[in-house]
Amino acid sequence: MIQEYINSGILEAYITGSASEQEVQELLRMKAIYPEVNTALQELETDMERIAQYMAVTPPIHTWDKISDHIDELMLRQTSAPTQFIEREDNNYKNFSKPDTGPQYIELEAESNHMKVHKTWKWVFIAVFVLSKIFLACAIYFYLENRQAQQQLNDLKTELHQLKK
């Protein structure tokens, strides 16, 4: 009887999400009672994974970056979310509270010291940093060159004066 149930194709319908709610409930009941059903279901799930592994495509790196950015954004929102206004016991702010109108919030401008920038700016900052170092090195080099040239010019002038005399 169990084998008949397993062979009916209901397990395949269940794992592909095409079974009706009634069939799902029945299968979950059968799975709990008969280990054979559970084993057959696990085998089918392995088959599904096999097909998927066969057709798998490696996602590009930027796909995870998108997911990561989205979660980071949520984290940032969570940390800067406004706190619910709680009425003080001394009733000094009684007039600001309107009962039965849902949660009360005080609107405040965010005073966070942090600034959120896109990840691509990281490379821009690195490029600016490297370029500034190159310019600095060039400036020092040309300054020294110039100083040496000035020195030589002065020496030559002195020699010329001496020769004229």
């Binding site: 998927a52 057709m55 798998a56 490696t58 949520l74």
Partner: peptide, 26 residues
């Protein structure tokens, strides 16, 4: 918490991202 969820998602993505992309692309 979101950092824990992010870590869990990363694990799932590493294990099944390619398989899911293959399926969706089909």
């Amino acid at each position: 918490s979101l950092p824990a969820i992010k870590q869990t998602l990363r694990g799932l993505y590493n294990s099944y991202g390619g398989m899911l992309l293959g399926y969706i692309q089909e």
